[in-house]
Design a protein around this nucleic acid. Structure first.
Lengths: 200, 200, 200, 200
DNA sequence: ACTTAAACGAGACGGTACGTCCCGTCTTTGC
DNA sequence: GCAAAGACGGGACGTACCGTCTCGTTTAAGT
């Protein structure tokens, strides 16, 4: 059951979509989050502002879509143990967070709080998808007999992503040390979970 | 040897200082971070804009000063064990982060990336002071013989503050559950440190 | 010798022509000259914008054609005397000017100055045709012996149409009084012409 | 009884007023009425757009004020006879109309119809003031015994200004011939008035 | 008391970006 | 090849803030 409105009128030009996303990413890299303007994106993309606002309701949505686009968050491969699964999840998180400049991440995070629609989209696109991954990993551990009961996935999610987030965004730590940090995080979360200290 | 320029002319009115801080906090609560304007603060405070810019170089500095004001980060009391000390540090962090609305925290974090001066101040006022606390706690554990060598304080700081940060700012979790989370965090960090898995 | 391009392809739909003209007039009445948009005309007419721009090069031309359409300016019937002929011409002018809302007339007049092509068409469609009428009337008066020489037709044209124009467009006078005014104008122009005060 | 609000805050800078008016006039001359943009005026005047919109509610008001500014319409000197007085009035009208480019006059006239406030101002600033002049001239003629009763000033105003208006704005006639036309107009109006054909 | 100099409320200033609107053109699908 | 529908590049509009700059007034400290 495709969208019935697709049949009428000139269809959206997908080259315009790409040009906007591309220009946004380039300019974010060149001028930073705070220095990005919609006019500059339009000019760089060779596109009218109307074409941008036809796709995105606000500047913030445009940036969000250009940066987050498709944080695929594929279903995680079973690595055989909770410890190994957690390590894999951590690496994925680290890879995603490291894919955008920190000032952009911080800017987006702030925008999420001033735009309800964006907040919902952020939650759906990113948080809930990642939570499913965490849930899956925990369920496996229960199935294996490593855990007696499934701990709260949201709590585990915070334990996993938090330190990496803090390292990059708040402490402005060296990105090269993120892999080491990810290992330590996986280690510490596995330790605390396996002692049974975290409630469901 | 005070600033000689202070002696001449009309002195700053400390009531103006308070009015600005107060108006800023009120308006942050009412309209949120993104909705705050300097004109509105001036009006609410019954103050001219010049009086604000005489005190703060930018809007961001004004907000920073009004919100962060005095994250005291007092020296931590020795609780007798690494596990207990980490728990205390975690509670402190949780208390500080919970004292401001999340949208304000996110907004300030974004500003830190577009304003070098603010970034430096944020680092000095907040990060480095907290790092000293972490370092002190770790040193005590070494002195007690709990740890063979002092792990990297920055890494430990990320492990401690990260999950709470993520819970509040990213996952938009229930603030009432933060104390529980803080306990879990302290537990997990103590576990991984005591196994010696974290390098110095 | 018709246009050879007319023979190929689908012929223009004359219903579309009428729909455009009709929608234009309706919307001019409802929203006024300044509030008219091509999109609105297309929507109201149930027509694509391309169909409009296939017929008219600009929005202004569209309006012009819809409003002026056929200012017939038929050859004037000989009324027997200069005085009577002038009165007839004046009534015709008054009738034409009164047929469109004043804001539309003012808008069109302004457009004539920003669009050379429209200016030319305005001149051909309206001014020159009217001038021929004036010239004819003056020539008759010469033939009758009422005038010794033919005065400058452009000057007489200005004397005849000017007051009615000013009354409606500038002074925003009562349209019901235009017939009276037209009589007075004819009277005054006849008077000055018959005294021989106007040069050829 | 001066404006009580003058005392508070920074006063308007009259140099800014002049810069705006000057830039508007220059650009009207260079690019014509249709080519004028508010941004261009702001840039040329070395002024922010806000400074313009603080003074004028719309672009149209700005242009109106810059062009019409002060059509002084001083009380007319008594020339001794109705015929001579009318000639003087005609010359004044001709001078005023000739002081601005025709495209600007046409543009302003159109604006008057899409902006009620501007229409009112146009009427007060220009039409009513001129009408007083006409009324005064007619009253003098009555006092002199040239006229039995005072004819309708609005009608006479239309008779006087109309032909000059039509000559310049509609017929796009040679501006050099306006003085001749003005004389003819005065002649014809005097003729018709003195025959008593125009009602009060 | 009188001068000096800075701080004060108010609000205008130059500048920049926003999001909207409209023009005239182009690109689909269908007839 | 015309039709409706609607996306396209371009560009102006009027609004909203920012951080600065006058105004005239008020408040101390130093004479």
């Amino acid at each position: 059951m495709p969208n019935p409105r697709q049949a009428v009128g000139r269809p959206r030009d997908s080259q315009v979509d790409h040009a906007i996303v591309r220009a946004t990413r380039e300019l974010l890299g060149e001028r930073g989050y705070a220095g990005l303007t919609v006019d500059a994106v339009a000019t760089r993309a060779g596109v009218g502002k109307a074409a941008i606002y036809r796709r995105y309701a606000t500047k913030q949505e445009m940036i969000f879509s250009a940066v987050v686009h498709d944080m695929g968050e594929q279903p995680p491969p079973d690595a055989g143990s909770l410890r190994a699964d957690l390590a894999a999840v951590c690496q994925t998180i680290a890879g995603q967070l490291g894919s955008a400049p920190t000032d952009v991440l911080a800017g987006l995070l702030a925008d999420v709080y001033s735009d309800t629609a964006l907040g919902a989209r952020f939650s759906e696109t990113f948080l809930q998808r990642e939570r499913l991954v965490v849930t899956e990993v925990l369920d496996r551990a229960v199935a294996r007999g490593e855990l007696a009961a499934r701990p709260d996935p949201a709590t585990v999610q915070a334990l996993l992503m938090g330190p990496i987030f803090a390292w990059l965004l708040i402490l402005m730590g060296d990105p090269d040390k993120v892999p080491d940090l990810a290992r330590t995080v996986a280690e510490s979360v596995a330790a605390v979970l396996l002692t049974g200290a975290v409630a469901g």
